[in-house]
Amino acid sequence: METKRSELKNIIMNTRTLPTLPGIIRKLTQLSENDKSSVQEMARLVSSDQVLSARILRLVNSPSYGFYRVSTISNAMILLGVNVVKSLAMSSSILGIMEKNNIGLWEHSLAVGVASNLISKKLGLPESEEIATAGLLHDIGKVIITLNCPEEEARVRKIADERHIYTIDAEREILGVDHAEVGGWLGKSWFLPEKLVEPISFHHDVELSRDHRIKTAVVHVAEVLSKASGFGDSGDPFVPSLQSAAWDMLKLTDQHLAELVCELEDKLVEMKNFSLETYESA
């Protein structure tokens, strides 16, 4: 078992076949960490990627922001903030990897991203944009397992189905490691910030999180809500337990939970239309 685990870790940390984070994001991160760089420099970098530019302009011009028409990337970056742009770049490229591989998982990830955003807005948490990104990426480990160990993954699904157990327990049994930990490894090897890596690594056990407990707790609750809604397919149909540690950390109330269920269901209807448009455009 231990050998399988280290084997998998080697694959993830070393292989070149792994999806790489597009260079543009690495450069964007470097620029944003360097306080000598200007927004103009970053805007020039972003402008070199047409898809990303289009997404940013679409976001900044969306009615929910209510800005007057914005047509340049540098204005958009000033209005949205560098962090929002970075999250957008990261999530759109990583979701691209996911979308090609497993539509059910992609839908589930979108739902958790939306739910994370709703929860952090409801609780008035800072960095809700980052929390939403963490939610989007929380199951990235599953993509890596599917890409690198398709046979084991099939066995995981089989025993989870036969024995009526959670996918995560089946993963631990077959692979000696679970998708959360694998996702954490990947995040580290991509040099993602800790505030994304911790929620990815510990979304099944929030108490293991140290520096970003609130963000981790939000992603955990978002995952439980998304599973409860039955939207998408993350591998098994069972709602995981809502950890009381997360409940206490976020100081959630019954009222919050009831409101969140309504708001999430409401958003999911629009998301369903989006994925129907994308995949059933026959």
């Binding site: 959670y166 809500l225 069972f238 709602v239 337990s241 009381s244 009831a258």
Partner: peptide
């Protein structure tokens, strides 16, 4: 819903969420 929640119905928070969903 009960089938989806079958593993967490004995847990107070799980049961609570199940109830909220049913009411919804």
């Amino acid at each position: 819903l009960d089938r989806r929640f079958e593993k967490v119905l004995s847990d107070p928070l799980g049961a609570k969420l199940n109830q909220i969903y049913k009411e919804y």
